[in-house]
Amino acid sequence: EVTIKANLIFANGSTQTAEFKGTFEKATSEAYAYADTLKKDNGEYTVDVADKGYTLNIKFAG
């Protein structure tokens, strides 16, 4: 089991951190699915992958 950390960075400057656990593939998939649910209210997003994929910096356009 691994932990994927998602740093969520919103257009208004606020930030939030979420963690997803499971296999690497499952946790990564859940992180992207979570970002997709936030897209409606926060706009499109870009992802900067860090720490060999264990950290995702997800920035929303607003």
Rank of each mutant, 00 (worst) to 15 (best):
E1D: 09
E1R: 03
E1K: 04
V2C: 04
T3M: 12
T3H: 09
I4V: 12
I4G: 00
K5I: 14
K5H: 13
A6W: 01
A6L: 11
N7G: 02
L8E: 00
L8H: 02
L8F: 15
I9L: 13
I9M: 10
I9N: 10
F10D: 02
A11L: 10
N12W: 06
N12L: 06
N12A: 06
G13C: 06
S14Y: 12
S14V: 13
S14R: 15
T15K: 12
T15P: 07
T15H: 13
T15N: 12
Q16R: 15
Q16F: 11
T17N: 11
T17P: 06
T17K: 11
A18F: 10
A18Y: 14
A18D: 06
E19V: 13
E19W: 14
E19H: 13
K21H: 15
K21L: 14
K21C: 05
G22K: 01
G22T: 02
T23I: 11
T23S: 13
T23G: 07
F24I: 10
F24E: 04
F24P: 05
E25V: 06
E25L: 05
E25I: 06
K26V: 14
K26T: 14
K26C: 05
K26M: 15
A27E: 01
T28K: 07
T28D: 02
S29V: 10
S29H: 15
E30Y: 09
E30D: 14
E30H: 10
E30Q: 11
E30N: 13
A31R: 00
A31N: 01
A31F: 03
A31L: 08
A31C: 05
A31Q: 01
Y32K: 07
Y32H: 08
Y32A: 03
Y32C: 04
A33Q: 10
Y34W: 08
Y34G: 01
Y34N: 03
A35H: 00
A35Q: 00
D36I: 04
D36T: 05
T37Q: 13
L38W: 10
K40I: 12
K40P: 13
D41P: 05
D41F: 09
D41V: 15
D41G: 10
D41C: 06
D41A: 15
N42D: 06
N42I: 06
G43N: 03
G43H: 02
E44I: 10
E44S: 14
E44R: 09
Y45H: 02
Y45R: 01
V47M: 05
V47A: 07
D48P: 01
D48W: 08
V49I: 11
V49P: 07
D51W: 02
D51C: 04
K52R: 09
K52T: 10
K52Y: 15
K52E: 14
G53V: 02
Y54L: 15
T55Q: 09
L56G: 00
L56H: 03
L56E: 00
N57V: 09
N57C: 05
N57T: 13
N57K: 07
I58F: 14
K59E: 08
K59V: 11
K59R: 14
K59L: 08
K59D: 04
F60Y: 14
F60Q: 01
F60H: 01
F60T: 00
F60E: 00
A61V: 10
G62L: 07
G62R: 08
G62W: 07
G62K: 09
